[in-house]
Every structure is written in C-alpha cells, then in structure tokens.
Nucleic acid binder design. Structure first.
Lengths: 342, 342
DNA sequence: TTGTAGGCGTTATCAC
DNA sequence: GTGATAACGCCTACAA
C-alpha cells in the first residue's frame, strides 16, 4: 500500500546520491539550488512520500502520542480528545487512541502496545485500582513520558491535569445544604480505588461535616461511572430507604445521575420535589434533560489541551517540571437541585 | 523514553546470537527449549519491549489503521470510534485518530501524515467537496487501502459503509405527510458537495413528489452538520417565512435539529404545535430533549465495527471485493413530529 | 539448533 | 556541494 518510492529511487533516476536527495527534501542549506529544484520536482512526479518508520528508527522519535481513555462514549472524553487533537495538530504529533473500556487489563495491554510502537509519550485517564499502582510506578521509573488527566495517579513522579475534584464536590454539596436546607442527603459514589472516586466522596463528606449534617453510611452507595450503574444504585437506594427517603442525592458524575433520575422516575417520584439530585461533569445532555441537571462544569476541552501541552513539553525538555495542574470548574445551577422550581 | 534494551543486548548477556533471541521471542519452533526459557527469562528481567518501528521497517506492515473523522464531538462519531476500537482490538491493530474539524485541508494533511507513518489502511468519513474528488481517486489508484464510512465517496474503487441515507430520509419525510398530513414542509440541508448532504435531500424531495406535496425552493435552506448552523438556518427560515410558516421541518441531522429547535423556541413558537421537526442520527440527546426528537436511528457502533472489519479484510486479502455495505436504520418516532402529543 | 550476512529507508559523520 | 559508509533494531535466507 502507498508509495514505495524511496530516496534511492529518486537518487538513481537523477544520478545523484541518496544523501543529496535526503538533504534536498529536508531543506538543508548545503545543496545546490538547481539540484534541489530537480530533486523536489522528481520527488513530486514520482509520488514520493517520506517513510516515517525509517526516520523514527534512526531518530528514535516517532512524533506520536498515545492516549488511553476509559470510555469514549462518555461525552466528557470526546471533548477532551478534541482538546488534545487541537494541541498536537499544531505540534505535528499524531494520536494513537485506545479505549480501555474501564478495564485495567485492557489498559495495560494498550500501554504495552503503545510502548512497542515507541510513542514519544502517553496521556492516560486511568481505570486503575490500588493494586495496580506498581505498574505505573515502573513505567515512570523507566523514564516513560506520561501525563495523567482527569483520573490521576499522583505522587509517582508524573504530571497530572485535572479539576479540583474534592473542592468542587464540596461546593455542590454545600449548595444543597446552604441554599436548600436539605439535611437528608445520599451519595452515589464512584469506585473507591480510583482517585476521583475517593476525592469526590471526601468533598461530599467534608461539606456535610462542615454543616454538621448527619452522615449515614447506608446512604452512601457505590455506583460507578456509567448510566446503568447509576440506575441500579438508585434502585437499590430506593428499596433500602422505603421508610425514610433522602431529600437529595449527590452523584459521582452526570451519566450516573442520569441513570439515577430514570430510576427515580420509574419509582413514580419526581425531581426535585420528591428528591433533588446533582451530578458532576456537565455532560452535553445535562441542560437538555426534562429536569435540567445541576452539576459541576468540567472544562473538558481545556483539560485535554493542557494535558497534551504538558506532555509535549515533558517530551521535548528533559527539565520540564513534574506538577499537578488544575483547571477551574464552575457550578452549573439548574433545576434538578430545587432551584428554578416552576 | 521506554526500554532501550534490544535483541543484541539480550544476546550478549546470554552469549547467544541476536537471531536466536529473535526466534525465541517470536515463538519459532527451532529453538532449544532450555535456551528459549533462559532467553524469555532474561528478556523479562531486562525489561525488553519489542521495537515495532524496526519490525515495521522490515515487514513493511505497521498493524496500524488511520481514522479520519470530521468532528469528534458530534456524538455519532465517538460511538463509531468505539465500534472501530472494538474490532481492531481483537485484530491487534491500533488506531491513529485524526479530526479534520470539517475542513478538507486538515483532512488532506491528516491523510498525508498517516501515509508517511505507513498505516496499513485508512477509515475515512470525508468532509470533501466535489473539487477534491481527484485526491481520493489518486489515493485509491496508488493502492492505498481505504474504506469510507458514513460520508462516502462512491464509484472510485473503495468500499463504503453507510446507512441508506436516501431511503431513510424519504421514510421520515413520508411519515410527516402520511401520518400528520403536513403539506407545508421545509428542509434544512447539509452541504450539497457532501454525499449524505445530497442523498438526504433527494430522499426528502422524493417523498414530497410521491405524495404530490408542493416543493418550494425558498424553503430549502442550506444549514450544515452543526448545531450552530441549524440555529442560524432556522432563524433565517423564520424571518423569510413570516407570512406563511412551514408546518414541519426536516433536517440534515440531530445537531442541526437541536439548534433549529432552539431558534424556534427563541421565536416564541412551540414544537410540535407551531412547527414539527425531525432529525437524523439519533443523537444521545434526542430522547432527552424537552420535546423528544423524532429521528432516524443510525447504528453508529455497527457502522464502525463493519467498516473496520471490511478494512482489515481489504488489508489482509488482496482479493477482498470492493463493495458498498449498508446497515439498516430504524425510525424513532417521538414527540417532535407531532406524535405522542400530550 | 544456531549463527552469519544482508537489507528494510533513512540520516549522521566524515571524506572528497 | 556531494558522496560513501555505517548505523538504527529487526528479520529473511542461507550456511554450518
């Protein structure tokens, strides 16, 4: 497939050496202007396409970045990818996209494959669990250039780009207490072996503590990042709390909240009258729902752009600092929390 | 970055030749079981990662596929990408993802870069215009393995995977006429230099002709694939039809319809009472809208999977036939057309 | 079963 | 300004 014309072919056709052709094609100074023109002309007419595989072998640089995301259909990630795309496009890198489908084994497979393809660096939003911490530690120690985004693993020597999950979660929870005076608040959590799962829960608990609202462990249900998981967790919560229902529910993210809203509706209850609910992400669907979702807006595009930018700097400059970058969130107050009640 | 351990290093450490190491690592039969075990052991302890760049140079096969999509944030495409991902994951290929951002110049840049990286084949959803037809013709003639999906260029010798756009468009338009008896129907079209832009418009016109409904050229407004374009086109349509408004509007796709609905709302009109509207895609948001959108469901995941499958066959078998594959659509009847009126 | 030679397409280096 | 040579890491083909 594609051009099998090589430097040598052009060289032979013109009676010069491959080296001269290489120099001409790469705009080196020390080539006679006339020969250069002849070479460029011939290269075009023969349909020459430079072979980056060979270039990479010599330079051990591929101008390629691997991206590992857990779920391409969660609307947050395509937006992140667009940010990454935009950044690498201007820097002439290309993207290997891999989808771990929330499975750590696939994540590891993907990374190993990327390493074999000798990518210059990797952007990762991990679906990792505690146990697998070691894997990334070794990766960083072997001098692999890595930047985490959104779902980070901190303290192992790699940079991270994310939002302030703990604080944002605290804020949106506080909104429920301060503005709406809810005191019976439940939580649909993410997996506790994922950093944002822990941090968002911590923020939730912190808010309750600050306002001296009672924390009930049986009202903290592990759901997950996906709509179906939110749906199931909410069903479970409704069953176990038939007597005394929560007034409000905080969720790990928007897909989870959307699933939960479906469960609430199916139970014949209404949002926010019977139960208020808030999310996290600001999914593309959030403002369009029958009851628009109050949530934390994460600037996905910015996260992607910043992460890609940081990675490229890390690749191109040995001395680039390792740091945790944060992009600011904003609260999106809509109807599902009880504001704007009609 | 990453392992700089090579076959030679392992060979030296063990006092064997690089060739023996290569054979052991690639599971060839002709290696002594004991030496093999020693080599595998050593490779692991030294942290060897095979260098696919070098492999590719030898085999001129990269196990890499390029994907060119026009807009990663249009919800249809991430779903397609997931389908592609799933297919290539099982076939051990990896994906270069590129986003043309609906610009043909970026699309060409992307393809040239992919060609230089010597991808084994390319999946394309084109943002092409008539003039640029030549580009793809040459690509196919140079024996580049290509499969188009969704936005296809037919008749140039490359396979296509798409839905039956003309027929689906005819069906949803017929629904408006047959079920709802609308006779004043407008159309927000896609670009006419893109195949699906033309085909969907043809289907619309065919339906009107079949039912002897009057076609008014001034009610066919070129919008585009994006929400903002739908919004603007609808505003324009509302201005120019102040006297006699259309009863219903057919749109090129869901984002366009969603933008148009916003324009309708801002004009103080309501859907479907003042104006019915239908889309095409079945965007993730379609069922969640305040007035759920009647639309054509395109099985995006299937499209991706089928296209990737076809491409891999085309890559691996010289004799794989060139064909136009169609995946069936279904009509999603919701409220925006006037059905299920409350 | 194992090793040697040569080459994939490109570039760095040194010589002319 | 241009060319020969070696090297990047691996594999095919042939030899031992």
């Amino acid at each position: 497939m594609s051009s099998n014309v090589t430097l040598k072919h052009i060289a032979e056709a013109l009676g010069v050496s491959a080296m001269t052709v290489s120099r001409a094609l790469n705009n080196r100074s020390n080539v006679d202007a006339r020969t250069k023109r002849r070479i460029l002309e011939k290269a075009r007419s023969m349909g020459y396409t430079p072979n980056h595989v060979a270039k990479s072998l010599v330079s051990s640089k591929t101008y390629t970045i691997g991206v590992v995301i857990p779920e391409i259909t969660h609307a947050f990630f395509p937006e992140v990818v667009r940010g990454i795309e935009e950044e690498v496009y201007t820097s002439e890198y290309q993207l290997f996209l891999t989808n771990s489908n929330e499975q750590f084994s696939r994540e590891k497979d993907a990374i190993r494959a990327l390493l074999s393809k000798r990518v210059d660096g990797i952007l990762i939003s991990s679906s990792q669990t505690e146990e697998d911490f070691e894997f990334y530690k070794e990766l960083v120690q072997s001098d692999t250039k890595i930047v985490f985004f959104d779902r980070c693993i901190e303290g192992i020597g790699a940079s991270c780009v994310s939002v302030n999950d703990r604080e944002s979660s605290r804020q949106i929870t506080s909104h429920l207490v301060e503005v709406h005076n809810y005191s019976r608040i439940a939580y649909l959590s993410g997996p506790q072996n994922v950093s944002i799962g822990r941090k968002r829960l911590e923020g939730f608990l912190k808010a309750l503590n600050e306002h001296e609202v009672r924390i009930r462990n049986e009202w903290i249900v592990e759901a997950g990042f996906r709509e179906e998981e939110g749906f199931r967790a909410m069903k479970k919560l409704l069953e176990t709390t038939a007597g005394e229902r929560p007034e409000a529910v905080v969720t790990i993210n928007d897909p989870c909240a959307i699933g939960a809203m479906r469960a609430i509706e199916e139970a014949g209850l209404s949002v926010p009258e019977d139960m208020a609910i808030v999310g996290f992400t600001d999914d593309i669907r959030a403002p369009l729902l029958k009851v628009p979702l109050t949530t934390v807006h994460q600037p996905a595009y910015e996260v992607g752009k910043k992460a890609a930018c940081k990675l490229i700097h890390t690749i191109e400059d040995e001395n680039e600092a390792v740091e945790n970058l944060e992009v600011p969130t904003t609260l999106k107050i809509r109807a599902s929390c009880g504001c704007m009640r009609s």
